[in-house]
Nucleic acid binder design. Sequence first.
DNA 1: CTGAAAGCGCTTACAG
DNA 2: CTGAAAGCGCTTACAG
Lengths: 339, 339
Amino acid sequence: MATLSDVAQRAGVTAATVSYVLSGKAQVKNETRARVLQAVEDLGYKPNLLARGLAQGKTFTIAAIVPEITNPYYAEIINEVEHIAGAKDYHILLAMSHGNPKVCAHLLDRFSSRWVDGFLIMGGAANPDLIQSMQQTSKPLVLSVWENDPQMENIPCFDIDFYDAGIQATKHLLNLGHSRIAIILEEPIQHTRFGGFKDAMQKAQVEIVPDYIVSGDSSYTSGFAAAQKLLQINPVPTAIFAANDAMAIGAMEAIHQAGLAIPNDISVIGVDDILLAEHSYPPLTTIRTPRRQLAKLIIQTLLAKIENPELVHVEKSAMLLKPHIIVRSSTTPPKKQIY
Amino acid sequence: MATLSDVAQRAGVTAATVSYVLSGKAQVKNETRARVLQAVEDLGYKPNLLARGLAQGKTFTIAAIVPEITNPYYAEIINEVEHIAGAKDYHILLAMSHGNPKVCAHLLDRFSSRWVDGFLIMGGAANPDLIQSMQQTSKPLVLSVWENDPQMENIPCFDIDFYDAGIQATKHLLNLGHSRIAIILEEPIQHTRFGGFKDAMQKAQVEIVPDYIVSGDSSYTSGFAAAQKLLQINPVPTAIFAANDAMAIGAMEAIHQAGLAIPNDISVIGVDDILLAEHSYPPLTTIRTPRRQLAKLIIQTLLAKIENPELVHVEKSAMLLKPHIIVRSSTTPPKKQIY
DNA sequence: CTGAAAGCGCTTACAG
DNA sequence: CTGAAAGCGCTTACAG
C-alpha cells in the first residue's frame, strides 16, 4: 500500500502538504493541490486509519455491546446503528454480553485498549459500578437499558416507554369491553409494562385476578404453556395480554389447539410488532415498539457527543420513546355472556 | 491513561524493557521483571492497541460482512464467530452488504484502510472481481457463499451442503411413501437444494409435476401464499418440501386455515431448523443446517491464516458441511387413497 | 540482560 | 503557501 510519503515524493512536496490537501486544514496553492491529488490517484493511496488514529487520538470506531445479536430486537437496532454510523465513516465493533455483567466488564476493558471513540451499551448487563468506571475514561457513552438507574446522571440513556405499552395494551382490551383480562409476562425485565397493566386496570376499576397472572420467559414456547394454564381456569379469561409478541403467538397456538377461536372466544394482544406479528393467524394486534427510532436516537446522540466533546447532558432522567398500538385481527369485543 | 513510558519511568527502566517483559520476546532479569509488573499494576497500564498495531502491522481486528444481521442465520453465525475470535482477543468489525455488490465493494474499501487482520465475507454480494482485487491486499480472506465460483482458487470457502439437504428432505418424503410431492423455493439462491430435490425424485422415478413447483422469497408470508396456491391444485399434493423453515411454517398456517390436518392430510418438511421449528404446531420435520459448526470453521480458518500467513490453501473447491434430518411430527406416510 | 535509536504512517504547531 | 521537526505509543533489531 502506498503511504503519505510515497504520495509526497511523487508530487514533489512534503508529507505535511499532502496531509493538508487531504484534510483541508490549511490553504494549499491550487497548482500543488492538483499535483498532490493526481499523485493520490496514481498511487491509489488510502490513508492508514491506524496511523491517523494514533496521531489524532481518534479511531472512527464505536464499540457496541448488546446482550444477544440473535435477538431480533437487537439485530434490528444494530442494523440501523451500523447504517447511520457507516454513513459518517464510523465502524461498529460488535460484542455480546449475554446479559452477563462479568462478560460486559471484560469487553469494556478490552475495548478501552482500542481507543474506540465511543461506547453503546444496551441491556442490563452493565451495572452502575461499571458505568461509573467507564465515565473515567471520558469516552462518550450512551446507554439503552430496561431500568433506568437514577444514579447515572450525565449519561444519555434512551429506551422505549414500556409502561405506556402496558397502558395502551390494557386500555385497548378494556375499551373493547373486556374485564376478564389475563397477562403473560416475564419478571423482572417486563416489570415496567406490568406496571402499566396494573395501573390501567385499577383506573378502570377492573379486578386483577391473581390466577390470571402467569409467567413466561419471553419465548414462543413459554407463551404456549402459559396459555394452556390459563385455559384451565374457570372462568376462562376473555382476553390475554402477552408482554411480547413471541409469547402472544405461542399463546394463540395453544388457544387454537384447544379448539377455541381467536378473537371470537379469546382476544390476544402482544408487544413489539415483530415481523411475524403481521403474518400470524389471525394477524396480531400489538403495541409497536419504535426500535429503529430508538437506534437512530442512540447512535446520533453518541456521534454528536463524539464530535462535540463539550456537549454535556444534564437531564437526569432517561428519554423514553412512545410505542403505539397496531390494531389487527386478534382482538374484538368479548362475546355476550348469558348469566 | 498510563503509557509504556510512564510504566518504564516508574520501574526505573526503559520502554523497551517494559515492552519485552510484556511480550515475553526477550529474557528479562527476574528482579526487573517484578519491578515492571508492579509498575504496570500500580498504574493500571493498558497497552494502546492502536500504537501496537502501527508498530506491528497487526490490529487484532476482523472485518465481517454479512448480507443482513437481522437474518437469524447470519446472527447465529456472527454470534459464534465473535465468541471464538473474542477468546483470542480479536474484535469483530461488523457490516451489512444487504446483498448489494456495490455496498460490499465500498465496505471492503473502507475496511482496507483500517488494516484489519482478515476478512470474512458471507453471502453472494462479493462478486469474483471484488474478491480478486481483495487478494491483492494480501490480507487473509475466508468466504462463505451460496454458489462457489470455480475461479476463486486459493481462497478458503465454506458452506453448507444444500444439495444434500435437498436430497435428504426429498428422500425422507419418498421413503414415507409420498409421490405427490410439491416444493416451495426461492430461485436462484435455493437452486442447489432444488437440484437435490430433482435428482432424488428422478432416482426414485417419481414424476415431478410442474404445477407442484411454486416460488417464494424465503419469508413466512410467501410460504403461506405458495401453499394456498398448491391447495387449489387437483389432486392436492400429499407432501410439501419447503426450501426453508420460515416458508414451511407459513405453509402450515395456510394448510390449517384450509381446514386440513398436518401431517395426516399433508406432510410438510423444511430446511434450517430455526428455533421456531421445534415449537411450531406440529413440530416441524426439517433438515438442520450446521450453522455453528460452519461459523467455527470459517473463523478458525481465518485465524489460522492470520497467525500463519504462509499457510496456503490449495484446494480448488469449497468445503461443504453435511446437514442432517431432524424428524418431528409434521411428516407421516400419506393416507391410503381409494381410486 | 537492558539501553539508545529508529521506525510504523500520520498530524500539527511553528517557521519562514 | 509549504517545509522541517516533533510527536502519537508502541516494537524491534542492534549494541554492549
